[in-house]
């Protein structure tokens, strides 16, 4: 089961980087992770990933890049606190595809929609097929 509060607390600088990545890759979906110390529930290290599908409707981490990044997190005793991707023509809500492939029960799944100029930034837990939206608290720095 996920631990931590039922809320994503994230530094503004990281939100800005995720949104910038989503805008830069539009109309294709952008994806990546924000790593943080294992068990801390605190996103710290921004890791944009290649969308191996280069598609406006699908994303998949490149398998070798994912291997390197996951091993690096393991070595640093980190975990993927946030896994983000963008929807470029629809709202920032998990699709059936998102739910069926969600495989990190401890992660906050962040969805960004670049469908309109006003970028949506929302966060969910996806555990055993169940989507739970959670509030996002954007902070200037972690206390």
């Amino acid at each position: 089961m996920p631990y931590g509060e039922a809320m994503l607390t994230i530094a503004r600088e990281l939100v800005d980087k995720i949104v910038a990545h989503a805008r830069a890759d539009h109309p294709d979906e952008a994806c990546g992770v924000v790593a943080g110390p294992a068990g801390s529930d605190r996103p710290e290290r921004f890791v944009p990933m290649e969308n191996a599908e280069r598609s406006p409707t699908f994303y998949r981490f490149d398998s070798m890049e994912q291997f390197r990044v996951w091993r690096e997190m393991d070595d640093k005793d980190e975990e993927p606190v946030v896994i983000y991707h963008s929807h470029t023509a629809t709202q920032a809500y998990p699709s059936r595809t998102d739910v069926s492939y969600a495989s990190e029960p401890n992660a906050h799944y962040v969805l960004v929609s670049t469908a309109s100029d006003d970028v949506e930034f929302r966060s969910y837990r996806i555990v055993e097929g169940v989507i739970t939206e959670e509030p996002v608290k954007i902070v200037e720095a972690y206390g």
Binding site: E29, R60, F61, I83, S95, T97
Partner: peptide, 12 residues
């Protein structure tokens, strides 16, 4: 041997 679930999804 390392097993990792692919991280994937999307609007489709």
């Amino acid at each position: 041997v390392t097993v990792l679930p692919a991280v994937a999804g999307g609007a489709r």
